[in-house]
Amino acid sequence: MGDLNSILAGFGGQGILFMGKVIATAGLLEGKEVSWLPSYGPEMRGGTANCSVCISSGDICSPLVTSPNVLIAMNLPSFTKFIDTVVPGGTVIVDSTLISKKVERNDVNVCYIPASALAEQSGLKGLANIILIGKLLELTGFCEYLSIKKTIEKVVPPKKQHLIQKNMEAIDIGYNYKG
């Protein structure tokens, strides 16, 4: 794909910011320009969390994404807040375990994936965010598949090395999911 201008949104605690970090790091490892900008302040404390992530082959002028070409939504308030900002032709990925509402626009590509349920079933609780990255990768090819593996190895903290395998499983579940 060309440049990625994404908004990732959900509740605090779902790993939204980490999801952004994984995506940005994948771009970094491929030698591209990347930016990651979180929402910050009181809304972080148990409320909604979102972040803007850009990957580009050129300079990134505005790290604050207002017209995303990718939206990943992990709760209804975020879905409602951002769905109309997606550019026509953009990609919307919805965790359908958590959001039952359907997209009413027909000028965007929508994918419903029950990421939270898939994570639960596969013994990967807490990795719904990574499953969604797998889906994003399959839909947009925002990076090479191999880069994701390298990324996971890099971003998983040294103390949690045993989670690398689980994260890769989560990527594959998302990547291979056919809704």
Partner: peptide
């Protein structure tokens, strides 16, 4: 500013 302080970049 808050944007530069909070954002991550390479």
């Amino acid at each position: 500013d808050g944007l530069l302080g909070q954002m991550m970049e390479p």
